[in-house]
């Protein structure tokens, strides 16, 4: 059993890494296709031919593409992401800080949102088609229907401006301790929770309801078990696989898709960092950020796969 799991993990890891290599090639090719080369975008309008040639040589742009790709990849494998063209800062250092912030917000949002979504899903199943189910479905669907910036502004208006409970500016910094940080991110985390709650809750509800039709659930009911216990002990384990997939997609969203929330709450995450550099055609940064986004997606999907397989004996022992 253990060796089986180890082999499975190794297999998936190898797959993920080779996928990441393929993605890195795509990213590199994609940024090469972009109109205007890097030297041109650094110098802008005042570009003279010799200055262009100088910069191209400095950046190694006169070498063939495959050579540049290999040296870029080599740098990344050693943790060297290069320096940003726009302000000469070390990418790994400034990006690292941003990645931490993004993960911090994503983590605490997930800590609240995932258990809450699953719990609400279980309750909705227990009271299927009665008022608790309708209330839960109705309110979460309303929240997901509102654009996230609108939810953000509503929360700011009530909780920051009117009640003054939480700050509207969630700009965390090094001098804050954990408690202060959590206080600062309360509103963005709440906004994101409202955004992702419905998706996970609905999937939990649907997946469990699917299982609830099975004969063994009927048996459990006939044994006289309490209904929440049946749902939690008997139905939920068999519904884990689709739920985990949806949870992972939402976690990935929390990492790569929260630019709007970052802008509204002035949160120093990766999204704004990427956008600023795209508009300046700062290719090394764009490549680095894209690679991290790809790694997050691949990593989370890999985890989803593993959990699904481990939770399902049929997948664990493929014929």
């Amino acid at each position: 059993m253990n060796s089986l799991i180890a082999r499975l993990i190794a297999q998936r890891l190898a797959l993920g890494i080779s996928l990441l290599f393929a993605v890195s090639m795509l990213i590199f090719a994609g940024t090469q296709i972009l109109p205007g080369d890097v030297a041109q975008s650094i110098l802008g309008q005042g570009a003279t031919p010799e200055a262009l040639a100088n910069i191209r040589r400095e950046l190694g742009l006169d070498q063939p593409a495959w050579q540049r790709y290999l040296s870029w990849l080599g740098g990344i494998l050693q943790g060297d992401l290069g320096t940003a063209l726009s302000n000469n800062r070390d990418i790994a250092e400034s990006l690292g800080r941003r990645v931490n912030n993004t993960l911090f917000l994503a983590f605490w949002t997930a800590v609240v949102a995932v258990p809450l979504a699953i719990l609400l899903g279980l309750v909705a199943v227990r009271y299927q088609n009665r008022w608790p189910d309708r209330l839960i479905s109705g309110s979460t669907l309303t929240a997901i229907s509102l654009p996230e910036f609108f939810i953000g502004y509503l929360l700011i208006y009530f909780f920051a401006v009117q009640l003054n409970w939480f700050p509207s500016v969630a700009s965390v910094h090094d001098r804050m301790n954990l408690g202060e940080r959590l206080h600062a991110i309360a509103l963005p985390a709440a906004t994101l929770t409202l955004v992702i709650l419905a998706h996970m809750m609905r999937m939990t509800r649907a997946a469990i309801l699917n299982v609830m039709q099975s004969a063994y659930i009927e048996t459990a009911e006939l044994k006289g078990l309490r209904s929440l216990l049946i749902i939690w002990r008997h139905a939920f384990p068999n519904a884990v696989s689709p739920v985990v997939n949806v949870v992972m997609i939402n976690l990935a969203f929390l990492v790569v898709g929260v630019v709007v929330v970052e802008v509204i709450f002035v949160y120093p995450g990766m999204g704004q960092y990427l956008i600023d550099h795209v508009s300046k055609r700062d290719i090394p940064v764009v490549q680095a950020v894209c690679l991290i986004f790809a790694a997050v997606y691949i990593g989370l999907n890999m985890i989803a796969d593993l959990v699904s397989i481990l939770s399902n004996p049929r997948l664990r022992h493929p014929k």
Partner: peptide, 19 residues
């Protein structure tokens, strides 16, 4: 200086006394 590029957020920050 806090960089707050979004107009609504900037006003909210002023109104709630954060800047």
């Amino acid at each position: 200086i806090l960089i707050i590029n979004d107009t609504t957020s900037r006003m909210a920050a002023l109104q709630s006394g954060q800047v």
